[in-house]
Design a protein around this nucleic acid. Structure first.
Lengths: 198, 198
DNA sequence: TGTAGCATGTAAGCCGTTACATGATTGA
DNA sequence: TCAATCATGTAACGGCTTACATGCTACA
């Protein structure tokens, strides 16, 4: 029953994938909820699309019959609930099974700036890396909360594996950044190492 | 001498940065050469823009007087050589000194697919990770060649540090991927196929 | 009573890609 | 001489963001 062949973007498939794991079966999710879930999970290894993009994407998926929409019945506030259709599931499965993953794309503003560290001197290079360590600690905290919420249930084995992947990635980045700091040339008056402090 | 304030993209600054390190001083680079350099270095922690984008970007930078152009004099084939101007250098320095780096963006197609590993089963999840390990090995080789070419010269200290960062990142990814493979469920415990085929 | 959160969308516009188009030079 | 590489661009378009616009509901 191949219906579509319209080349969806990876982000489309990612959102479709999130719809598979809606909590209470076939309850569906609103665009708003989908965005929240993307903020919690997708953003760690893909991107979390803007609200407007989520709605645009849902519109496209619905047009292709990969998701179905039902207006929220009265009682609660009005909302469109989306759930994945059989066709959508088949399409997602086909994508997963048949497409070769590209190599990851990393946009690393800190590394990019460090490359030009020579223009700046060790002081600024140090603060670049120190700032990155702080960002990492913060991100790690968010991801750890997600990972904890997944627990060890068999049903969530793969999401848990991916969350662990992320955590180890952040740890590795922190290791490397700390190491690079020790390799900076001695600066005349560099502020003390952030050993104590918060 | 603040002239510009036109909000350049990070990619613009990245290309401007590459122009700083042109080999023989003030020889300048052609768009073509700039693209080649981006392929060799920038792509590991940012992106390597398409050829057409390089020319577009150079046009913009020239319009803003951040780079100057001189047509290649006879002898060799005709080409435009670009070099960074004093204004461009000041602008780049200002950007480096004053802007806070964003947290990196990672688009990781393999992790994204692994998240939905439950739909695929351990076999495919395994081949996903094995394929990623191969890609990593290949990328690492390219980056190692770049790193070796940088040597230990003081002038290239920062580029070398960033290359080492990349190498350690790839090694960490490989460690994690190998580890995740061991955590896959035994292959015969395959989840239900979604209603055979299309 | 008012503000934060829920909920849905449209419009303008940037960044970047692929496809297309052109032509010179080098070397097998 | 023919293909690969050098070299430069334009056009069309996709994906995604920000800004804008609207309105309801829970609760402090």
């Amino acid at each position: 029953m191949r219906v579509v062949r319209q080349e969806l973007s990876t982000t489309s498939y990612a959102l479709l994938g999130l719809l598979v794991f809606d909590g209470t079966p076939s309850d569906g999710m609103t665009g708003y909820e989908l965005k929240q879930r993307a903020d919690k999970t997708l953003r760690f290894y893909w991107v979390s699309p803007a609200m407007s993009q989520v709605y645009t994407e849902l519109g496209r998926l619905e047009h292709l019959r990969l998701v179905s929409v039902t207006p929220e019945r009265a009682g609660r506030r009005k909302a469109q609930r989306y759930r994945i259709t059989d066709v959508g599931f088949a399409e997602l499965h086909q994508w997963l099974a048949a497409t070769e993953p590209e190599f990851p794309v990393l946009k690393h503003p800190t590394a990019l700036r460090l490359l030009m560290g020579g223009l700046l001197g060790a002081d600024r290079a140090h603060s670049l890396l120190a700032g990155y360590l702080e960002q990492l600690a913060e991100r790690r905290k968010s991801l750890l909360a997600v990972r904890d919420s997944l627990g060890d249930a068999e049903a969530l084995r793969y999401p848990a594996m991916v969350a662990d992947w992320g955590l180890r990635y952040y740890d590795s980045e922190a290791d490397i950044a700390r190491d690079l700091i020790t390799r900076l040339p001695p600066a005349e008056a560099r502020p003390p190492e952030p050993s104590d402090r918060t």
